[in-house]
């Protein structure tokens, strides 16, 4: 007999009774245990917090032999209680991703392609750039006009206290590296954000901004 949706429906009433007997080849009795080993059974579990939005969901990362094999919601976490959205559900692909940068890349002025370089080389060169630009564009002081209190007097008869101001041009210390700007980042950990602000301000940067402004 040719079976399709239509005939299935047609037959349904008439032949229902035969199902138990296997009349249409339908057999409920020999159900089978479908065994597949839980693939995270031998994995190690590490807790993390999702790297995407600011809800801050807890995630369990399962690893085996140094590789991420699974990641899913942390059921103990009071915010997400084990649940995750599409982004959180797929963070394992972040660790197994072929697009991830594995070495520093360098693009020389005018070049048409990236070149892989060693860390030491790249970091030394960046440090050199920072120093040269900082030295070249460092501004120790600025002259600026400020409004200063010129005189203060109490007029006894009126009981009013009166202050007089004047605009004065003065030189002030600013100790600023004018030629470098920094943006980023809300994608860093707190400790790293703290280090960023500490470091770039020690270099004298004031053009320091990040995602919070957008």
């Amino acid at each position: 007999m040719k079976i399709n949706r239509r005939s299935f429906l047609k037959l349904s009433g008439a032949t229902a009774g035969t199902f138990m007997m296997g009349g249409l080849g339908f057999d409920l009795s020999p159900v089978k245990a479908y065994a597949r080993e839980l693939r995270i059974k031998k994995g190690k579990e590490t807790t993390t917090i999702c790297c995407y939005c600011s809800v801050g969901c807890g995630i369990l990362v399962h690893t085996l032999e140094g590789k991420v094999i699974n990641a899913e919601g942390d059921p103990d976490h009071p915010v997400n209680e084990g649940s995750l959205c599409s982004k959180g559900s797929t963070i394992s692909q972040m660790a197994t991703n072929e697009s991830r940068l594995r070495k520093p890349l360098y693009r020389a002025p005018g070049a048409k392609a990236w070149k892989e370089v060693e860390w030491d080389w790249a970091l030394d060169r960046v440090a050199r750039r920072i120093k040269d630009t900082r030295d070249r564009t460092f501004k120790p002081t600025v002259r600026t006009t400020v409004r200063e209190k010129f005189a203060a007097e109490s007029a006894e008869e009126s009981g009013l206290y009166r202050e007089t101001f004047a605009d004065v041009e003065k030189e002030f210390v600013v100790n600023r590296a004018e030629g470098i700007a920094h943006v980023g980042s809300a994608a860093l950990d707190n400790e790293e954000c703290y280090l960023v602000q500490k470091l770039v301000r020690s270099w004298g940067l004031v053009h320091v901004e990040h995602q919070a402004r957008l």
């Binding site: 807790t47 917090i49 809800v55 801050g56 594995r102 520093p104 790249a122 960046v126």
Partner: peptide
């Protein structure tokens, strides 16, 4: 200079969510 950093599951540290909740995360790999 394009410098490759690692992802949040490859290091340790804290992040603060929208409700100022500061949570520590661990290195998995």
């Amino acid at each position: 200079f394009l410098l490759p950093c690692c992802s949040s599951i490859e290091k340790e540290g804290s992040i603060s969510n929208s409700s100022r909740l500061v949570q520590w995360r661990y290195k998995a790999i």
